[in-house]
Deep mutational scan, measured.
Amino acid sequence: VTVDIKGMEYHFDNPEEAKKFAERMAKELGGELKVENGTLKVE
């Protein structure tokens, strides 16, 4: 699973970990979490 945090890509084997990480980063950065082509994106 790929997580894109404002252009920086992180790769996770575990989808649950990827989702938790993306949600935490969205909250910390005040960004919006989206799913695009199987990639979790925070913008």
Results as ranks from 00 to 15, higher is better:
Val1Lys: 04
Val1Ser: 08
Val1Ala: 08
Val1Met: 12
Val1Phe: 13
Val1Cys: 14
Val1Arg: 03
Val1Gln: 07
Thr2Lys: 11
Thr2Asp: 03
Thr2Gly: 02
Thr2Tyr: 07
Thr2Met: 09
Thr2Leu: 10
Thr2Pro: 02
Val3Pro: 01
Val3Lys: 00
Val3Asn: 01
Val3Glu: 00
Val3His: 00
Val3Ile: 05
Asp4Trp: 15
Asp4Ile: 15
Ile5Ala: 02
Ile5Gly: 01
Ile5Arg: 00
Ile5Met: 03
Ile5Tyr: 08
Ile5Thr: 01
Lys6Phe: 15
Lys6His: 15
Lys6Ser: 14
Lys6Tyr: 15
Lys6Cys: 15
Lys6Gln: 14
Lys6Ala: 14
Lys6Gly: 15
Gly7Trp: 03
Gly7Lys: 01
Gly7Val: 02
Gly7Gln: 02
Gly7Leu: 01
Met8Ile: 14
Met8Phe: 13
Met8Cys: 13
Met8His: 12
Met8Ala: 08
Met8Glu: 11
Met8Leu: 12
Met8Arg: 13
Met8Trp: 11
Glu9Arg: 14
Glu9Asp: 04
Glu9Cys: 14
Glu9Asn: 08
Glu9Val: 15
Tyr10Asp: 00
Tyr10Thr: 02
Tyr10Gly: 00
Tyr10Pro: 01
Tyr10Ile: 06
Tyr10His: 04
Tyr10Gln: 02
Tyr10Arg: 01
Tyr10Lys: 02
His11Arg: 10
His11Trp: 13
His11Ile: 11
His11Val: 11
His11Lys: 10
His11Met: 08
His11Phe: 12
Phe12Gln: 00
Phe12Ile: 01
Phe12Ala: 00
Phe12Val: 00
Phe12Arg: 00
Phe12Glu: 00
Asp13Lys: 10
Asp13Ile: 10
Asp13Glu: 11
Asp13Trp: 09
Asp13Gly: 08
Asp13Phe: 07
Asn14Pro: 00
Asn14Ala: 04
Asn14Val: 04
Asn14Lys: 05
Asn14Ser: 13
Pro15Asn: 08
Pro15Tyr: 15
Pro15Cys: 11
Pro15Leu: 14
Glu16Val: 09
Glu16Leu: 09
Glu16His: 10
Glu16Met: 10
Glu16Lys: 06
Glu17Asn: 05
Glu17Tyr: 04
Glu17Gln: 08
Glu17Phe: 03
Glu17Ala: 10
Glu17Gly: 02
Glu17Cys: 12
Ala18Glu: 00
Ala18Leu: 02
Lys19Met: 15
Lys19Val: 12
Lys19His: 12
Lys19Asn: 07
Lys20Gln: 12
Lys20Asn: 11
Lys20Asp: 12
Lys20Gly: 06
Lys20Ile: 12
Lys20Ser: 11
Lys20Cys: 10
Phe21Ser: 00
Phe21His: 01
Phe21Val: 00
Ala22Leu: 07
Ala22His: 01
Ala22Cys: 08
Ala22Trp: 06
Glu23Tyr: 04
Glu23Asp: 10
Glu23Pro: 00
Glu23Arg: 02
Glu23Gln: 07
Glu23Met: 07
Glu23Lys: 04
Glu23Ala: 05
Glu23Thr: 04
Arg24Asn: 12
Arg24Gly: 11
Arg24Ser: 13
Arg24Leu: 14
Met25His: 05
Met25Ile: 10
Met25Ser: 04
Met25Ala: 09
Met25Cys: 12
Met25Asn: 04
Met25Lys: 07
Met25Thr: 05
Met25Asp: 04
Ala26Tyr: 05
Ala26Asn: 05
Ala26Met: 07
Ala26Cys: 12
Ala26Gly: 04
Lys27Val: 11
Lys27Glu: 12
Lys27Ala: 13
Lys27Met: 13
Lys27His: 12
Lys27Gln: 13
Lys27Leu: 14
Lys27Asp: 11
Lys27Tyr: 13
Glu28Pro: 02
Glu28Gln: 07
Glu28Ser: 04
Glu28Thr: 05
Glu28Lys: 09
Glu28Gly: 02
Glu28Tyr: 09
Leu29Arg: 01
Leu29His: 06
Leu29Met: 10
Leu29Thr: 08
Leu29Pro: 03
Leu29Asp: 04
Gly30Cys: 11
Gly30Ala: 08
Gly30Val: 05
Gly30Asp: 09
Gly31Gln: 07
Gly31Asp: 04
Gly31Met: 13
Gly31Leu: 14
Gly31Ile: 11
Glu32Arg: 10
Glu32Ala: 12
Glu32Tyr: 15
Glu32Phe: 15
Glu32Gly: 06
Glu32Pro: 05
Glu32His: 14
Leu33Val: 15
Leu33Glu: 03
Leu33Met: 10
Leu33Ile: 14
Leu33Arg: 01
Leu33Asp: 03
Leu33Cys: 10
Lys34Trp: 11
Lys34Arg: 13
Lys34Phe: 11
Lys34Asn: 07
Lys34Pro: 03
Lys34Gln: 07
Lys34Asp: 05
Lys34Tyr: 12
Lys34Gly: 04
Lys34Cys: 10
Val35Ala: 08
Val35Trp: 15
Val35Thr: 11
Val35Ile: 13
Val35Phe: 14
Val35Arg: 05
Val35Gly: 06
Val35Lys: 07
Glu36Phe: 11
Glu36Pro: 03
Glu36Ala: 10
Glu36Cys: 11
Glu36Asp: 11
Glu36Lys: 05
Asn37Thr: 05
Asn37Gly: 11
Asn37Ala: 08
Asn37Met: 08
Asn37Trp: 05
Asn37Gln: 08
Asn37Leu: 08
Gly38His: 07
Gly38Ala: 06
Gly38Lys: 02
Gly38Glu: 05
Gly38Asn: 10
Gly38Trp: 02
Gly38Thr: 06
Gly38Ser: 06
Gly38Val: 04
Thr39Asp: 06
Thr39Arg: 10
Thr39Gln: 11
Thr39Ala: 09
Thr39Pro: 03
Thr39Asn: 11
Leu40Val: 06
Leu40Cys: 09
Leu40Asp: 03
Leu40Asn: 03
Leu40Pro: 03
Leu40Glu: 03
Lys41His: 09
Lys41Met: 09
Lys41Gly: 04
Lys41Val: 12
Lys41Leu: 09
Lys41Pro: 04
Lys41Arg: 12
Lys41Trp: 09
Val42Tyr: 04
Val42Pro: 04
Val42Asn: 03
Val42Lys: 02
Glu43Asn: 10
Glu43Ser: 12
Glu43Trp: 14
Glu43Tyr: 15
Glu43His: 13
Glu43Ala: 10
Glu43Leu: 14
Glu43Ile: 15
Glu43Asp: 11
